[in-house]
C-alpha cells in the first residue's frame, strides 16, 4: 500500500525519532512510504486561536499538497482531527474547496488506528517492555480513538505491565497557544496530570501527541520526576527491533 506521511510540525522539529519509527513500522508491514515535500502545518494553532482566515490559507494549501495521495497517515491524532473535523466546516463557504476537504478527510488516518483498522496489526501482541508502562490519552484524539482503544492497544494479558492512571482522560494542559497565553493555568493543569502519572509508579509514559509530550516532558524535567515519554510508533519499532541503529 502506498502511504503519504503527514509528519506535522511538532514531530518534524522536536520528535524526529517518532517520525522515523512511523516510517519503519509502516514499511515493516509492507507499506511504501512517501513524504510530500511541500508539507508544513495543517493550521491547527491558528484555527484554535480563532485566526480562521490564516487557518483557511493553510487548509487549502494542505489539501493541494496531499490530495494526490490515496492514503495519508500521521503520528498525531490532533492534526488528523483538524483535517477530518475542521477543514470542511472551515471551508463551508467555498463549495469546491469544501468537497475537496471532505475527500481528504476520508483519506487521513492516525498512525495507530491505521495499523489496527487498515493493516490489521495486533499492536498489543507486538509490544515488548521490560518495565511497567502507563499512558497519556491526548484530548484531541477524541473522535479519532478513545482512551479505551489506547488501553486495549497496550494491554496483552500477562505481557505488558500497564499501570492505568487515575482519570485516564485528564488533560495535560498543553492546548497550543493556551500554554503560553495562560502559563499559570496551563502549568497547574500540567502538575495535576504529572501527579496522576507519577502515582502509577511507571516511568515510561506512552504519549502519541507531540504537543502533550513537549508539555509533560518539560514539566517532568522541571520537577525532577523520572518520567520518560515515547510515541507508540517508537514502542512498536523498538519491540520489533526496527530502530537498532538509533537508541
Amino acid at each position: 500500500m502506498d502511504v503519504a506521511l503527514f509528519i506535522t510540525c511538532l514531530t518534524d522539529s522536536f520528535f524526529p525519532r517518532a517520525g522515523e519509527a512511523v516510517v519503519r513500522v509502516l514499511r515493516h508491514f509492507g507499506c511504501r512510504v512517501q513524504f510530500p515535500a511541500g508539507q508544513t502545518c495543517c493550521g491547527q494553532p491558528a484555527y484554535n486561536s480563532g485566526f480562521h482566515d490564516e487557518a483557511r490559507v493553510l487548509a487549502r494549501r494542505m489539501i493541494e499538497i496531499f490530495e494526490p495521495y490515496e492514503t495519508i497517515v500521521s503520528p498525531s491524532a490532533s492534526c488528523v482531527a483538524m483535517v477530518k473535523q475542521h477543514f470542511a466546516p472551515l471551508l463551508a463557504d467555498e463549495p469546491a474547496w469544501r468537497s475537496r476537504a471532505e475527500r481528504l478527510a476520508e483519506r487521513a488516518h492516525e498512525f495507530a488506528t491505521f495499523l489496527v483498522d487498515r493493516l490489521n496489526v495486533d499492536i498489543a501482541g507486538l509490544l515488548r517492555f521490560d518495565e511497567p508502562v502507563t499512558f497519556h490519552y491526548p484530548c484531541h484524539a477524541r473522535g479519532i480513538y478513545g482512551a479505551e482503544d489506547l488501553q486495549r492497544w497496550l494491554t496483552r494479558d500477562g505481557q505488558v505491565n500497564l499501570r492505568l492512571p487515575q482519570h485516564v482522560d485528564c488533560c495535560c494542559g498543553f492546548g497550543g497557544m493556551f500554554a503560553v497565553d495562560y502559563p499559570e493555568i496551563s502549568t497547574a493543569m500540567l502538575n495535576d496530570k504529572l501527579d496522576l502519572l507519577a502515582a502509577t509508579g511507571a516511568r515510561l509514559v506512552i504519549c502519541n501527541e507531540g504537543g502533550c509530550t513537549l508539555q509533560m516532558a518539560g514539566g517532568a524535567r522541571r520537577r525532577g520526576l523520572p518520567l520518560r515519554f515515547k510515541h507508540i510508533a517508537e514502542c512498536v519499532a523498538d519491540s520489533l527491533g526496527l530502530m537498532k541503529d538509533r537508541p
Binding site: G19, P183, T187, G218, G219, R222
Partner: peptide, 29 residues
C-alpha cells in the same frame, strides 16, 4: 518566558525529521 516559568522546553532536534528523511530514510524506499 511564559513557557519556561513552570516547565523546561525541549530544544528542536539537531536534525529535523525532514532532514532525516532527505539524508537517510528516503534512500530505503
Amino acid at each position: 518566558a511564559s513557557w519556561t516559568a513552570g516547565r523546561d522546553l525541549l530544544r528542536p532536534a539537531p536534525r529535523s525529521f525532514r532532514q532525516l528523511w532527505q539524508e537517510e530514510l528516503r534512500e530505503q524506499s
